[in-house]
């Protein structure tokens, strides 16, 4: 990697100032060090943000919970209350990578991580996402790629926390130009939908401070399918959340990961499910709606039936015991 300076920020103001030149924020470093080592990003200064006060807390209020961006994935996984209140979030965290990685990976880093597309990550392919002329995956090895995209790049979002936050209708609070900006998960990733060079909507210097999760959806679930049984990326992931009143879904939301540059959400499916009693038939219809406009490529069409199956299963998990 290129040589860089290192500094620790003790306030968000100083973090912003430090990063303003050619700097990058450093928290868990799982993604950043990989990018630096492969010369996929470069920086003159790494700004350690692990000492920023107040960002490593999980706080619960009556109407929403706040999870600081420096909370680790392992802390989410191990949090007994989160497991009760947001079981989908717990399950998503528990599936991420390995224990060693979860121990240092942060919520902010998980949300801001870059594409895992093997053309983007390869040191010697100059793909669209790296200012090249073409998306190699489109007519190439696209087994892990998107069924949906708004641009020419088909690398999908792989943050399973983002998928789950989307289903829970969580909001990311981002420090931008000194102001706190509120972004839904759709907004947080919209940039990647439009722009092949983008991994999300964050601008240079933007810092995710925390995520707010409303408590209105008392049920949540998460499932993923991978080639392997552990420590493997999701081929498709699905999160669903809703309240259940008199046996009927209220404000249901479904989101999928690894099939689009953004957490894939279809409002028509959410409104279809609203007020419905969950059974196989409703779950199936919702899955049909969610996948209706999928554009499978040569090697990723399997994701359509796979996604269909886990949408149904995730929704049926919402029924729970009660």
């Amino acid at each position: 990697m290129k040589a860089f300076q290192y500094a620790t920020a003790h306030s968000t103001d100083s973090a912003r100032e430090l990063v303003a030149g050619n700097g990058l924020y450093l928290a868990g470093g799982n993604d950043l060090f990989g990018l630096l080592k492969e010369y996929l990003v470069g920086a003159d200064l790494l700004v350690n943000i692990k000492s920023l006060p107040g960002l490593n807390k999980v706080e619960h209020g009556k109407t929403f919970w706040t999870i600081g961006s420096l909370v680790t994935v392992a802390e989410i996984e191990d949090h007994a209350e989160i497991k009760k209140v947001f079981p989908g979030l717990h399950d998503a965290a528990a599936e991420i990578a390995s224990q060693q990685i979860r121990n240092v990976a942060t919520v902010g880093g998980n949300l801001a991580q870059h594409s895992r597309c093997w053309y983007f990550r390869h040191r010697d392919t100059q793909c669209l996402k790296k200012h090249g002329d073409l998306c190699y995956a489109r007519d190439g090895e696209n087994r892990y790629h998107s069924l949906f995209t708004g641009n020419s790049c088909i690398s999908p979002v792989v943050s399973s926390l983002a998928t789950t936050f989307a289903a829970l209708d969580a909001t990311a609070i981002v420090l931008r130009d000194g102001q706190e900006t509120r972004m839904s998960m759709a907004e947080l990733y919209h940039g990647a939908w439009e722009n092949p060079l983008a991994h999300n909507s964050l601008d240079k210097g933007d810092l995710i401070l925390r995520v707010e999760i409303p408590t209105t959806r008392t049920r949540s679930a998460y499932l993923q399918v991978s080639d392997k049984h552990a420590f493997d990326w999701a081929l498709v992931s699905c999160a669903a959340a809703a309240a259940v009143v008199d046996g009927k879904l209220k404000s249901p939301r479904v989101a999928l990961g690894s099939i689009s540059p953004v957490p894939h959400q279809v409002e028509a499916a959410n409104s279809f499910l609203d007020g419905k009693v969950l059974d196989d038939a409703t779950a199936t219809q919702a899955a049909d709606l969610i996948l209706k406009d999928a554009k499978p490529l040569e090697h990723n069409a399997y994701k359509v039936p796979m996604a269909h199956a886990i949408i149904r299963r995730t929704l049926l998990k919402l029924k729970g015991d009660a």
Partner: peptide, 25 residues
Amino acid sequence: RVMDDLSGVVLNPNFETYKLPGIAD
């Protein structure tokens, strides 16, 4: 081993995408 027809590179020169059985498997 996955190779790319267009660029001729090995696309999975790592244990992330060259998948090996882990203890859970």
